[in-house]
Each structure stands twice: as C-alpha cells, then as structure tokens.
Simulated assay, not measured.
Amino acid sequence: MNTLRLDDSRPGVVRLTLHRPDRLNAMTAEMFVELAEAAERIRLDDSIRAVVLCGAGAGFCAGYDVEAAKDFAATSTAQLLDLQDSAWRALHAIYSLPKPVIAAVHGAAVGGGFSLSLAADIRLAGASARFQAIFIRRGLSGADLGTSWFLPRMVGTGLAAELLYTGRPVYAEEAVRIGIANRTVADEVLLDEADELAGRIAEHAPLAVALTKRSLRANVDAPSLLTALELESRAQVSLMHQQLNF
C-alpha cells in the first residue's frame, strides 16, 4: 500500500497508520481504496484482535487533499459521486470491523480525518489533538462522511449542531469533556498508551469481544430496553458452552 502502513505492535494488535506525512496524511482517492483493502485484511486475519488507528508525522489526518480537490470543478457529477461513495465505503469498512479500533489522535483530525476518527470505537487524544468538522468552511455541507450520525450520539444534538454549523475546532481537553475522546494523553506516549489499551482488549476471547462490539453498536439504536436485552441474551447464550472460563 502506498498511503497506509500495517504493522504489528504487540501480540494480537496491529497499527494501521495513515502514511502521507508530507501532506499531513491528507486523504486521496487512492487512500480510500487502500483503507477498504486494509480493513478487509484485518477482518480476515484471525491473529489480529484489536487495531490502533494513527497518523504518521505531525498530525492524524488533514482531511481531503486540497491539491487533489482543485480538480473538482472540472470533474463530472458522476465522477464526484463515485469519489464520495469510495470515501464513505472506506470509512464504513473501518467502522464495521468486528475487532475494536482505537484512534490515537495527535495534531489535526479535520474534515474527513475527523470523520475517520469518529468511526473508531475509542479515541485517545494527544495533547496536541484538534478535532474539526471543517466542511462548512469550504462551502460544503457540515454533514459529511457520517458526522451528522456520529456527533449527536456522542455530544448531543445541540452541541453537534454548533460544531457542524460553525466548523470551530475542538481541542483535546474539550474533546474529553464533551465526549468525543475518552481521555487525553501526552503526545510522546500516545501510541504506547493506545497499544497498551489495545493489548488489554486483545487478551480476551475474540468472539466474546466481537459479540460485545456487535451488541453495543446495535443497541445504540435499539427501540427499547427489551430489544437490547433480547440481543444481548442471544449473544451470551451462544458463548456459554465453549467460552466460560472460571
């Protein structure tokens, strides 16, 4: 892959690194394809139990590459739709992984980079982290690549509206306070902290973790407590015979 790196960091844990450091890991059409390919590799590799998603160099991801975006005016509507579809498929491939994904965010996570960080299960914010739905400042809809779905679930509709309508940045401490990030970590130990957390998850039975993730994701939108209880029960019973270890 040209825009990404996949590296084992400890048993059961892989680092998926956005690797265009000279462009602040800005997204391109090639990166969208490679993200989907990397997600499929991870999904099929039973030795991988947790993923650390990070960016090389000075930041996490600066969104779509502005140099590539200069071609948009001369690009057909059909071609732009294909590009947008490729982008959301890449993000959804990361979001739908059966294995937990921890985003280790330092520096800029803006535009599509912000959306990608939101697709992770857990976000650790380096002290330098800056989360920003910058689309509105580019004359585009603030609702892009899942932000209008992710943000209200994390911060509530009122604050989500503020962030999407203004495009203002959210720095590490505020990100933790409002629920975008789990906690702040010094930049110099961010990846170590993310690897350690992923390692603790990887110690558990893979099927138990996968079914926990499926239940958590599904029950965010469950219409009732009874629906959630039913889904949890089916997953739990499927594990009881072979997985119990007391």
Rank of each mutant, 00 (worst) to 15 (best):
M1Y: 03
T3E: 11
L4D: 03
R5F: 04
S9M: 15
R15Q: 09
L16C: 00
L16K: 00
T17H: 01
L18H: 05
L18N: 08
L18C: 10
R20H: 08
R20V: 11
R20P: 11
R20N: 04
P21K: 09
R23M: 10
R23D: 11
L24A: 11
A26E: 06
M27V: 10
T28Q: 03
T28V: 07
E30I: 05
M31V: 10
M31L: 11
M31H: 09
E34L: 04
L35V: 11
E40I: 06
R41Y: 02
R41S: 02
R41K: 14
I42H: 03
R43S: 04
I48S: 03
R49Y: 11
V51P: 06
G57N: 09
C61F: 02
A62Y: 02
A62R: 03
Y64E: 14
A68C: 01
A68E: 10
K70V: 02
A74C: 13
A74V: 15
T75F: 04
A78E: 13
L83Q: 05
L83I: 15
S86A: 15
W88L: 06
A90H: 04
H92F: 12
H92P: 10
H92N: 12
Y95M: 04
L97F: 09
L97V: 05
P98E: 05
A103D: 00
V105G: 00
V105Y: 02
V105C: 06
A108E: 15
V110Y: 02
G111V: 07
G113T: 08
S115D: 14
S117M: 14
L118W: 03
D121T: 06
I122F: 10
I122S: 04
R123G: 05
L124W: 14
L124A: 12
A127L: 11
A127F: 04
S128Q: 09
S128V: 12
A129S: 15
Q132A: 06
A133G: 03
A133D: 06
I134R: 08
L140W: 07
L140R: 09
L140V: 05
L140Q: 10
A143M: 08
D144Y: 11
L145A: 10
G146T: 04
S148G: 04
M154N: 02
G158C: 02
A161C: 08
A161V: 10
E162F: 01
L163T: 01
T166W: 01
R168E: 15
V170P: 00
A172S: 14
A172M: 08
I178G: 07
G179N: 09
G179P: 03
I180C: 00
V185S: 05
V185T: 08
A186L: 08
E188A: 06
L190I: 11
L190W: 03
L191P: 03
L191C: 06
D195T: 12
E196V: 00
L197M: 14
G199E: 04
G199I: 07
R200H: 14
R200Y: 13
I201Y: 04
A202Q: 05
A202C: 07
A202M: 07
E203Q: 08
A205V: 08
P206R: 12
P206N: 15
P206C: 13
V209T: 13
K213D: 13
S215V: 15
S215E: 15
L216A: 06
L216K: 01
R217N: 12
V220D: 10
V220S: 01
A222F: 00
S224E: 08
T227C: 07
L229R: 15
L229H: 14
E230M: 10
L231P: 08
R234L: 13
V237W: 14
H241T: 10
Q243L: 01
L244F: 05
N245M: 05
N245T: 07
